[in-house]
């Protein structure tokens, strides 16, 4: 049983070492990113989605419900994303 455990640890260590070098380099890059820039990454992601929603064709965001009423979804989607941007700017 002990031999099996030792072998599996050795195998796991060998595989881990293959990834660890690359992983440590990437972790170093991430650590070097200032927190203000990290926050910017989140906000830019939301802004890209806002731009995408604005650019969606009208027929994909304005639809008729089964009861005949027309529903305009773009303003609600923009409200949702806009609120999130404000939250990430505050906290």
């Amino acid at each position: 049983m002990n031999n099996v455990l030792l072998t599996s640890t050795a195998l796991a260590d060998t595989i881990a070492n293959l990834f660890r070098g690359v992983g440590d380099i990437m972790r170093g890059w991430m650590l070097a990113i200032p927190m203000s820039v990290a926050k910017g990454v989140f906000i830019v992601y939301f802004l890209i989605l806002i731009y995408w929603v604005i650019k969606l064709p009208e027929n994909e965001v304005t639809l008729a419900l089964d009861n005949g009423k027309v529903i305009h979804l773009r303003p609600f989607a923009l409200f949702s994303l806009g609120t999130i941007v404000v939250i990430y700017l505050v906290f």
Partner: peptide, 12 residues
């Protein structure tokens, strides 16, 4: 599996 079995975990 590697993360759980390696002497030092793969992820920190």
């Amino acid at each position: 599996w590697v993360n759980n079995n390696a002497s030092v975990p793969l992820f920190q």
